[in-house]
Computed example of a mutant assay.
Amino acid sequence: MKSVNEQQLQMGLDTSGDVTVNPDGSPVPQAQVIRNVLAQGQLADRVGVDFFGVGEHHRPDFAVSAPDVVLAGLATSTERIHLGSAVTVLSSDDPIRVFQRFSTINALSNGRAEVVLGRGSFTESFPLFGYKLEDYDQLFADKLELFSRVASEEPFNWNPGDRNPLRNQRVYPETEGGLARWIAVGGSPESVVRAAQYKTPLMLAIIGGPASRFKPFVDLYHRANRELGNGELPVAVHSPGHIAETDAEAQEQIVEHWITNRNKIGRERGWGQASKEQFDQEIKHGSLYVGSPETVAQKIAKTVSALGVNRFDLKYSNGPLPHEYSMRSIELYGTEVILRVREILGLKDDA
């Protein structure tokens, strides 16, 4: 495996389109949240961020249920940034339509689209679109196989028994150089190996605990690729965080919103109540990247170096954290953090 000094390190941002509040605590309508996401992506483009990802959810605390539509808007209002999902819940979608939507974004953006495929850590889309949760794993396996055939952009056959068979089928619009795609994994060895089997770059969602605990998954992925004769494929990390001028300011801005968001999801999943102590521990020893540009850059560089990854995506949206704070965080990430990370790692500024 190449060292990070020999790699091209990309630095991205992700949002789940969390429904936010204004600085005075009043709620922001979902329609405005979507417009704010557009402004955030445009700012990320201007300040030099490499990738902007938009997540998919189907619940009241997230405004974006159709990230590809938001990405299409960004495709025509940005110039250089790569645009993708974070993630597309392939299990409850139609693989052919997913490809068609993202190949359209690819056309609108002159080849800057990326699709990140996952099973989804939230399950609201399954009953909404008529799928059974007990089929969670099989749905993803079957749909990933179909998507891989479609994405080859070669004529394919498909006869799974639950839909009309396809014979020598092509799907349009065609791309001008292929569609970039990733498989998102939360920490299952089987999922890591499957990404290698499909010769697809790996996106690791590290949202709690020390990032170093994912090193065995990175090693497994590279070993599987070598055994399969795939060559070297990229690995990316997605983790939450927030940036302000100082550590104290960043923590003060996010702590209440982080705890609110963590407890809302925790109640649904049977987790214990989050606390300020847990928040502090995640910043010091876990995968919460909160602080000044220097603090966040040092921590990102440590993770990139420890895991040997090719991309780091900061999930900058944090529950109801106000849009104004996120905009400043994006600005600091693009103008200070990215340059500092590359400096710490000894990479060229144009890496």
Rank of each mutant, 00 (worst) to 15 (best):
P210M: 05
S109Y: 09
S317I: 02
E256G: 11
D14C: 15
N36I: 01
L204C: 04
A236E: 04
V19C: 14
N168G: 09
T123R: 13
A107M: 07
M1P: 10
R342Y: 07
L314P: 01
R311G: 06
T295F: 09
E176N: 15
A196H: 03
S3P: 07
K284E: 14
F279S: 00
I105Y: 01
N164E: 15
L220V: 01
K215N: 09
W258V: 11
L128T: 14
G291P: 01
D50N: 13
S317A: 11
L9R: 00
S317M: 01
E56L: 04
T335D: 13
G334W: 01
Q40Y: 05
S287Y: 02
P27H: 13
A75H: 00
R340P: 03
D14K: 08
G209K: 08
N168E: 13
R80G: 12
E174W: 04
H257Q: 11
R80P: 03
F99M: 03
N159F: 00
W158P: 02
A184V: 14
V192D: 03
E176Y: 07
G186C: 06
A248N: 06
V218A: 12
Q273R: 14
E268L: 15
Q42D: 06
S103A: 15
E153I: 00
L321G: 05
R194E: 05
S329M: 05
R163T: 07
A113V: 05
S121P: 01
L166F: 05
L117G: 03
S65D: 12
E227Y: 01
G12I: 02
S326T: 14
F126Y: 13
P155D: 11
L90R: 00
G231V: 11
G334T: 06
E282T: 07
P173K: 07
N225S: 06
R167W: 08
S125Y: 06
D350G: 01
A205P: 00
G291A: 07
L117A: 04
Y325C: 08
V21I: 10
Y136Q: 06
L321S: 11
R163N: 06
Q278I: 12
Q7K: 15
